[in-house]
Nucleic acid binder design. Structure first.
Lengths: 260, 260
DNA sequence: AGATCACAAGTTGCATCCATACTTGGTGAA
DNA sequence: TTCACCAAGTATGGATGCAACTTGTGATCT
């Protein structure tokens, strides 16, 4: 049961048709969500059934379902007889999400420190080594050769580290809640925010090391404190990067569509 | 601007028909969710489009949308060409959800203690008094006269207390996450779990008092500790009640893990 | 008798069609 | 010139029809 879930930050499919001819509406929701959160679809824009249906080569019905799913996730707002509008994030939203995430992951680290098994601990250390090796390989390449594949390795190793801790926490609902928060954040934002900055990457690695060590000592309080600080730093880096890329909505919003 | 935001994930209505004849699919999702979480619709049962459409007097299209929303909330699982199956909670799920909720609400209390304004503090105290009065009125009535309306008063006062703290925390995303957890729990479960037990009600009241006092002293650490313990106690009462009512699924799950 | 295969019933998934509400551009009057 | 009103256009919400898939049952073969 360990290897089951790809965990948070995993939007695998998007590749056109999932199965044969039928494209599940959840796949469409995922594809739309990815485009929205990466900024490919602008914040505040309206999503029109007809255009999306034509683009995906299907009818409006599954599009409508996908939009309702996105509304349930808080990513768009459906206004009656007007359509679905993209709910942008403000810098404040990202920071607040980061606060929540840091608390939850800190809690997970504490539980993990109290409950982790020897086998899981060994996996965690292996994951850390994988993270280290992937980073070393990444930073030693010249910038031109840094392809997506090498970068994906340390992204995967990073995800694995956090997932192992969630797994070791023994609380499945905690995992669901954290996933739900990831659903409200841009995918791979950590990768994008860190990819160019070697110093931050190395700092990240060192933090992972200390967290794993505290968990290995069954020191829940320290593990929690370290993890919380770790996530907060990552969030700050993400906010910086998003602000630089102009992906954030300004604080003041032009017109509130859902005034009820 | 604080009071404005129905940020993402704020749907207050549940009141039958939203407009006139048109029933929004969101309203249908709410109605179905309520029935599922109260046990009116059995765990493990299949929801069929045709039957639901006939029951609500509408066609299958909005039913399908509602089911997809419920799947996004983790309440049902849609299996291709087979339908939507109700995902029951196990006692472990409820406990785990309670752990998460207690952490988040504890965090909210800590933030509230650090950031609350004088005006909000006064509201909080007023809310506490309302809670006290409603409980007094409730417990002094003979059992037969305890109608839904009087009980609803202290339920509302209790909700107001927690909502004010969330508001004072200044973190809107925290509120969304907690609401999302509530979406995975039976509605009014606290009311149902507490309604018959005067001692628990009074203890609840005393805990609210201490929490409000710690927040008033700007003592974040104490407020957090008290709130976390408060929620955990409430969750334990809820689990007891749900086990007594047979609303929980047995621990071992036959097949079909609920994570996607 | 037990197992296997084929067929039929039932359900879902998607496409298309109709009704309704909102938007918007234009026109006329103050 | 500006405001108000009206009408046409457009997009969404819901209903219905059809194809594909799953499953249960019964007949046939070993």
């Amino acid at each position: 049961m360990g290897a089951r879930g790809p965990g948070p930050g995993d939007w695998s499919f998007e590749s056109t048709s999932a199965g044969k001819g039928r494209t599940s509406s959840v796949a469409i929701a995922q594809a739309l969500q990815r485009r929205i959160l990466t900024g490919e679809i602008a914040v505040g824009s309206w999503l029109r059934h007809e255009a999306l249906a034509a683009e995906f080569g299907i009818s409006r019905t599954p599009i409508r379902e996908a939009l309702h799913v996105l509304q349930a996730r808080g990513i768009v707002t459906i206004v009656r007889n007007r359509g679905a509008r993209v709910n942008g994030h403000s810098s404040r939203d990202i920071r607040e999400l980061g606060e929540v995430r840091s608390e939850l992951e800190g809690f997970a680290a504490q539980l993990a420190a109290e409950r982790i098994t020897d086998e899981q601990l060994e996996q965690l250390r292996g994951s850390w080594r994988g993270f280290r090796d992937a980073i070393e390989e990444f930073v030693q390449k010249p910038s031109q050769e840094r392809d997506a594949e090498t970068a994906a390795r340390w992204v995967a190793a990073n995800d694995e580290f956090h997932n192992l801790i969630l797994e070791a926490s023994g609380n499945r609902q905690l995992r669901v809640s954290i996933q739900e928060i990831h659903h409200r954040l841009p995918p791979n934002s950590s990768y994008l925010a860190y990819s160019g900055r070697e110093r931050l990457l190395r700092q990240n690695l060192a933090e992972h090391d200390k967290i794993a060590e505290a968990i290995g000592r069954n020191d829940g309080a320290t593990a929690r404190r370290l993890m919380t600080a770790h996530i907060r730093r990552a969030v700050m880096a993400t906010v910086d990067w998003m602000e630089g890329k102009g992906l954030l909505r300004d604080g003041a919003e032009p017109d509130e569509p859902l005034a009820r």
